[in-house]
């Protein structure tokens, strides 16, 4: 049997399955008569199951059903965010501050005229100038505004939230609860709350951070002691990446279980 015939058979099977599922799902469970809303709902539940299976089919290989679901998803989601953005930001935030007439047209309460909101309006229009080959360069003003502002704001945000606190947290006592060498050995224990463990933890954190930073040195050759420290640094990084990888595995499996629950329960109604 050649490829195109197979394709046709699969297509017919898929369409049939879709129609059967739609028909079965259209019957309300309580035995009432079929209504327009139940038919409509049945169509969408079947469609959801169809696109779910279409996406899963990607695991076998790229195929027309995946392509269909992918392209549909792209179109629908792009428009979705555009509609949400238009109504919430453009109409919700800009219009009520620049025009009573437009506010009325869009049915949003007019707030007050705020001159400063003309700035993004103008910059936005300049951005649209990209579509013109002659005035395209004007769009750079808007880009410059966005890039400049965000560069400045984010530089500070990161420094404030992460960087400085990480630097100061590196200052840890290496001799935790130190009462002398004698006491250290006489009270020695491997318990997680014990003095030895606490000290070991602080030492590993300090040396790990130190070597990790050395690994990130770009302008010095990684040779000798420096090279050794840098190697320890990358080992610590790799061990951490492994741990993080292992940690995520179980979480991902639960996502799959969620999707299978949809197929077997919401669509096929096999679970109860």
């Amino acid at each position: 049997m050649n490829g195109s015939r197979w394709t046709m058979i699969v297509l017919i099977a898929v369409v049939t399955l879709f129609l059967v599922s739609w028909a079965i799902k259209s019957f309300p469970s309580s035995g009432d008569t079929i209504s327009w809303p139940s038919i409509r709902h049945a169509f969408f539940v079947t469609l959801a199951a169809f696109v779910t299976l279409a996406i899963f089919s990607f695991l076998y290989k790229d195929n027309p059903y995946y392509k269909f679901a992918e392209h549909l998803f792209v179109g629908v989601s792009a428009a979705y965010w555009m509609c949400v953005g238009f109504w919430s930001t453009f109409v919700g935030n800009l219009i009520p501050r620049i025009s009573p007439g437009l506010s009325k047209f869009f049915g949003v309460p007019y707030k007050e005229f705020t001159f400063y909101y003309f700035v993004p309006l103008i910059l936005g229009i300049l951005l649209l100038m990209r579509l013109s080959s002659k005035a395209g360069w004007l769009s750079r003003w808007a880009l410059a505004f966005i890039v400049g502002t965000t560069a400045g704001l984010n530089l500070i945000r990161y420094l404030r939230s992460d960087f400085i606190s990480q630097v100061s947290n590196t200052f840890v006592p290496l001799l935790v609860q130190w009462k002398g060498t004698g006491a250290f050995f006489s009270d020695f224990s491997l318990a997680s709350g014990g003095q030895f463990t606490l000290m070991l933890t602080n030492w590993v954190i300090f040396i790990g951070t130190f070597c990790g930073l050395i690994y990130f040195f770009f302008s010095k050759e990684h040779k000798g002691v420096f090279g050794a420290a840098s190697r320890v640094g990358i080992w610590v990084l790799m061990i951490t990446f492994g741990a993080s990888f292992g940690y995520t595995v179980m979480g991902r499996v639960s996502l799959l279980v969620g999707r299978l629950t949809f197929l077997f329960d919401d669509w096929l109604g096999l679970m109860n």
């Binding site: 590993v204 954190i205 300090f206 790990g208 990790g212 930073l213 610590v236 061990i239």
Partner: peptide, 12 residues
């Protein structure tokens, strides 16, 4: 422990 050290180095 090592996770904290590595993250700190990366964040800095």
């Amino acid at each position: 422990v090592p996770n904290l050290a590595a993250k700190r180095a990366i964040i800095i």
